[in-house]
Amino acid sequence: MVESIVKNWQGEEVGQKAFDLPSAKPETASHIVHRALVRQMTNARQGTASTKTRAEVRGGGRKPWRQKGTGRARAGSIRSPLWRGGGVIFGPKPRDFNLKMNRKERRLALRTALVSRVDDLIVVEEFSNELSRPKTKELLAAFTRWGVAAEQKSLLILSELSENIYLSGRNVENLKLMPADQLNVYDLLHADKIIVTTSALDKIQEVYNA
């Protein structure tokens, strides 16, 4: 059970929010989070890098010169890997980099990663009604009141991504917006500060404790 102070739109402390996210044991926590992080970053690779072998490079059907008598090294094709414009030896070919991880392990890694960032977690009241229209300046001012510096990388987790909040924050360089049901280990660990609304915290418990 973790308790966090809840702040309102003005940055004032208005109460506390308790949430319970079962996490991995201390001796295995770093291992399972690391596995989930490696899996996410590896699965993001396209695996489309490709080179041509000497069999696939165009040309080279005719023997450049006769086998003996020229004084030069013997050569059978101008597309040999030793020649300029020739094939590539052991070059990359399209491949699938995907790693598998059980769903229970993935959710455990997510919960563990979030609980490990509890010192950098800022819980705020639902504030979608405070932005009657998209206004980046007002959103950044609220971040300052909550204790987030402009140069810090921040992750804003919402129960639902409203249009006004999305339009207000999409151009902020160090800000990433994310719905509560689409969390990932990389963004949880990459951010300097994590801002989460009370309703998003309830949704996280509902989705990832199942």
Score class of each variant (00 low, 15 high):
1 M>G: 05
1 M>Q: 11
5 I>S: 05
6 V>I: 14
8 N>A: 03
9 W>Y: 12
9 W>K: 02
17 K>G: 00
20 D>V: 08
21 L>K: 02
23 S>L: 06
24 A>S: 07
26 P>I: 00
28 T>V: 14
29 A>W: 05
29 A>V: 09
33 V>K: 01
33 V>R: 02
34 H>C: 09
34 H>V: 03
35 R>T: 11
36 A>S: 11
36 A>Q: 00
38 V>H: 01
38 V>F: 09
41 M>T: 13
42 T>S: 13
42 T>M: 15
43 N>G: 01
44 A>W: 08
48 T>F: 14
49 A>H: 14
49 A>Y: 07
53 T>N: 14
58 R>P: 03
59 G>E: 06
60 G>K: 03
62 R>H: 06
65 W>Y: 13
66 R>H: 12
67 Q>P: 07
67 Q>A: 12
68 K>F: 11
69 G>R: 10
72 R>E: 10
73 A>W: 04
74 R>V: 13
75 A>D: 11
76 G>A: 12
78 I>H: 12
79 R>M: 04
79 R>N: 09
85 G>A: 05
86 G>T: 09
92 P>D: 05
92 P>L: 12
96 D>A: 03
99 L>I: 10
100 K>A: 15
105 E>D: 14
106 R>G: 13
106 R>D: 10
106 R>T: 14
106 R>I: 12
107 R>E: 12
110 L>M: 01
110 L>G: 02
111 R>I: 04
113 A>T: 05
115 V>R: 06
116 S>Q: 06
122 I>K: 05
123 V>I: 11
123 V>G: 00
127 F>Q: 03
128 S>R: 14
130 E>N: 09
132 S>I: 13
132 S>Y: 10
133 R>C: 04
135 K>Q: 13
135 K>M: 07
136 T>G: 02
140 L>H: 00
141 A>I: 01
141 A>D: 15
142 A>M: 04
144 T>Q: 14
146 W>T: 07
148 V>R: 00
151 E>Q: 14
152 Q>K: 15
152 Q>Y: 07
155 L>S: 02
158 L>C: 12
158 L>F: 06
161 L>Y: 07
161 L>R: 12
162 S>T: 15
168 S>H: 02
168 S>N: 01
170 R>N: 11
171 N>K: 13
172 V>M: 03
173 E>N: 13
176 K>S: 15
177 L>A: 04
178 M>Q: 15
179 P>D: 08
181 D>K: 12
181 D>F: 10
186 Y>C: 02
188 L>Q: 01
190 H>R: 09
193 K>L: 06
194 I>W: 03
196 V>W: 01
196 V>I: 15
201 L>C: 08
201 L>R: 04
203 K>V: 02
203 K>W: 07
203 K>Q: 14
210 A>E: 14
